[in-house]
């Protein structure tokens, strides 16, 4: 498994790193903006694009792409924030469930940041599908935890439809995020680096 070490962002120390910090800071606002747009689309448009109860998940695609481009810390924070925002803005759902599921998606995607295997269009799409299935399974698990019935047949249909629809929107979503954020760069906790 060949890997290309991604650039690590630092805001401390030498002048070179200061220059880099100037270049990535605006991109962090871009991450927040992308996540916000994805959340708004997810609660306003996507529920209406429904096939056999499956709904395309813009947020999953964006979180996967952000994780792949900015590492596990940014992926996790973006995932948790997006999940919480969806649960606050959209009716229904237990506060914290989507945040936790998207956090795991962001963290897992971030672990692959900068690897050669995830360059190109297909790997993020496949990761988005896997992440969507994971989110749906997590949702079903929570339903079972709260003693609500889950029909296996309906669930399988819903997951399949959601995965297919998510795959369809993953291509443009990942392309847009890549275009906005640029090359993969692992963003480490910068307060620690400042101390270092």
């Amino acid at each position: 498994m060949s890997t290309t070490p991604p650039m690590i962002i630092s805001s401390a120390g030498d002048s070179a790193s200061s220059v880099r910090s100037l270049s990535w800071r605006p991109r962090m606002w871009a991450v927040a903006l992308i996540v916000l747009v994805a959340v708004l689309l997810q609660v306003s448009l996507m529920p209406f694009i429904r096939v056999t109860d499956g709904i395309p998940d813009t947020v999953v695609c964006v979180i996967v792409a952000v994780g792949l481009l900015r590492g596990s810390v940014v992926g996790s924070v973006a995932g948790a924030a997006a999940g919480m925002a969806v649960e606050l803005a959209a009716p229904g759902g237990t506060l914290g469930v989507l945040a936790l599921l998207y956090l795991v998606v962001g963290w897992a995607s971030g672990r692959l940041c900068g690897r050669d295997e995830v360059r190109g269009v297909l790997p993020p799409v496949i990761l988005s599908i896997i992440a969507e299935v994971f989110v749906q399974l997590g949702g079903a698990f929570v339903q079972l935890m709260f003693a609500r019935p889950v029909d296996v047949g309906d669930f399988v249909r819903t997951v399949l439809a959601a995965a297919i629809l998510t795959a369809l929107i993953a291509v443009p979503a990942v392309s847009i995020v890549r275009r906005v954020l640029g090359a993969p760069r692992v963003v480490e906790p910068f307060l620690i680096m400042r101390d270092g």
Binding site: A80, L95, G96, L100, W107, E188, L191
Partner: peptide, 21 residues
Amino acid sequence: RRAMARRVIIGVLVLVCVISI
């Protein structure tokens, strides 16, 4: 220290989510 900070950040987020649920 970076690895520790990563774990702390993610751990805190997970904790917040679990408490919320």
